[in-house]
């Protein structure tokens, strides 16, 4: 593995690495301690089929298995139904056919607790940062005082120090997204569904948040399904990358990411990483060319 040193921007990277030191580790411990007694859940999907009323099928007979404590990214072009897949997993949509099992429980029989982080920040404009972030804990019955205390402890590590009494409209887009992220983490749950959570963040914050997420996950091995359209992000974070190449989504092409952990941002400059990226880019390029040449009938 060859890691290039002295590249421009290295200073910034070091700053990020410093920021995600022991404080962040402690934060990570706290963030997940709430749901510590829950086993990380595996996710099983079989024969999943969904179409919007009157529309062509978006997902057709999809099988998908994600092991306990696995970090899997779903990579697809826009409009392929990534978000629809997530909404199905989160129980917000009813599939026309197929079964979803989370932690051995059928989705239909028991609503498993899922940490769902939607693309939009979905903060409540009438709640302060503190109360927005505490929402999930509030709903699961944690006393308000305790919930708020926990949020207060975590705010500095999310770059949100001093904002606890502010309202969402007073925050920048990136800060809003971080509040939303904090809320999902504190909501507890066995399975985390993250729908392009970093897409609204600026490049630097995004990098530090990716590394931060990696640290949390490496310590606690929660099951995470991560939607993104960013190949770098998918490779950096995941054990496996699942690629949806054609519509309707009937199968996801699997790319194992056999890069050693712990990974940092420097991993992205290594040879194996670049090789994987080239492979994935090739896949997308090929799929797109094929689809446009054959009118998408393949």
């Amino acid at each position: 593995m060859s890691i290039k040193k002295g590249q421009p921007g290295e200073q910034g990277l070091e700053r990020v690495a410093g920021a995600s030191g022991t404080a962040a580790e402690a934060a990570a411990t706290n963030a997940f301690a709430h749901s510590e007694n829950n086993e990380p859940a595996g996710l099983s999907v079989s024969g999943l089929t969904y179409a919007f009323p009157g529309g062509p099928p978006l997902i057709e007979g999809l099988d998908l298995h994600i092991g306990q404590g696995e970090f899997v990214s779903v990579l697809a072009a826009s409009g392929m139904g990534k978000t629809t897949l997530f909404r199905l997993l989160a129980g917000l949509l009813e599939p026309q056919a197929g079964a979803i099992t989370i932690g051995g429980m059928n989705r239909k029989e028991q609503a498993a607790k899922i940490g769902y982080m939607p693309q939009k920040d979905c903060l409540m404009p009438w709640r302060t940062v503190l109360d927005n972030a505490a929402l999930g804990m509030e709903l699961s019955g944690t006393p308000k005082k305790e919930a708020r205390q926990r949020v207060r402890e975590l705010l500095p590590d999310f770059g949100l120090a001093g904002t606890e009494a502010k309202y969402p409209h007073e925050l920048s887009g990136g800060m809003r997204q971080r509040v939303s992220f904090l809320r999902s983490l504190l909501g507890g749950g066995e399975l985390f569904l993250l729908d392009e959570p970093f897409s609204a963040l600026d490049a630097m914050t995004r990098v530090s948040m990716q590394e931060w997420l990696l640290q949390i996950w490496e310590q606690h091995r929660k099951t995470i399904v991560f939607i993104t359209h960013d190949i770098d992000e998918a490779l950096l974070l995941s054990d496996r990358v699942l690629v949806a190449a054609k519509a309707p989504v009937a199968e996801l092409v699997e790319y194992p990411v056999a890069l050693t952990r712990p990974r940092t941002y420097e991993t992205m400059l290594s040879e194996p990483f670049v090789a994987l990226k080239r492979q994935l880019l090739g896949h997308f390029g090929h799929a797109h060319t094929a689809a446009s040449l054959e009118g998408g009938s393949r």
Binding site: A90, A111, P118, C122, M124, W126, L135, G136, L139, G187
Partner: peptide, 29 residues
């Protein structure tokens, strides 16, 4: 009332009563 916020609350296990109190009422105020 923003349906996305309602959905998020549902994924967090909110029932009808909680949806009404924590989502609908503040939205309509």
């Amino acid at each position: 009332a923003d349906p996305d916020i309602g959905e998020l609350l549902r994924t967090m296990g909110a029932g009808k009563r909680e949806l009404f109190l924590k989502w609908k009422i503040p939205s309509a105020l």
